[in-house]
Write a protein that binds this DNA or RNA. Sequence first.
DNA 1: TATATATGTTAGGCAAGACTAACATATGTA
DNA 2: TACATATGTTAGTCTTGCCTAACATATATA
Lengths: 128, 128
Amino acid sequence: MKFNESMEMYLETILLLEENHGHAHGVDIAKKLRVSKPSVTKAMNILKENGFVNKETYGTITLTKKGLEYSKKIYSTHTLISKYLEKSLGLKRIEATKNACKMEHVISTVMLDAIKTYLESEDKDDNY
Amino acid sequence: MKFNESMEMYLETILLLEENHGHAHGVDIAKKLRVSKPSVTKAMNILKENGFVNKETYGTITLTKKGLEYSKKIYSTHTLISKYLEKSLGLKRIEATKNACKMEHVISTVMLDAIKTYLESEDKDDNY
DNA sequence: TATATATGTTAGGCAAGACTAACATATGTA
DNA sequence: TACATATGTTAGTCTTGCCTAACATATATA
């Protein structure tokens, strides 16, 4: 199961809301992503059908185990890319985040692995 | 005037075909981008309406000055990103190109400038 | 030059992902 | 507890970008 950018952004947003409040409200997702409430409803139904979120009609939204794994993976990718851009290009945090947010949906696993390696070796440098 | 990924890919493809054959045929664009002929026709009409290509009905396609500038800019971005990925992550050419092809449509101008700076300093290193 | 093949266009349709308007339900507070 | 407000859903629409089928034109060659 591989989602597109749109669904990945919904999942990532739910993850962040859960971490802050223990659960996600549709209206908060809508605000964060700057989409309408009906768009959130539709997306949540798709995520639910595919087993990524738990949700009753008119109820709050939580990630399933599967959904948690997936969204953590995306968020981890996001963080790694952001650090990579900061370190290799000297981008400011906000600029790195902005670009990472787009890149996280499109880069290959080979590139992601290379970023991990890059950051590990940079970490070593930091210890000198 | 800012195009989306789809139109940018059409423009980039036309540029490459023009460089190889002096002009682009719809059928070749379709093959390169793996889309149908009608999709190309539609895209070409949009590009023509916006002054990016010259084309008569049933005629061949060439870039206008505006179209040439735009597509060269995208292609240049593509090349810079690809080099950056090769140098900073050690990606192989084909892997770098694959990722650059996605990234070229989404990165910010600030990031692109940072890549240019990065590559310039790397060039200097090469001369030691 | 007549005809087969290659190329380009038109018409119509589909799916994704967004929207608004209207309606349904939940929640908090007087 | 009743009602106002907040939140969620349904229905219907729009745009983008793609598709296939059918048709139109151009090109090449017998």
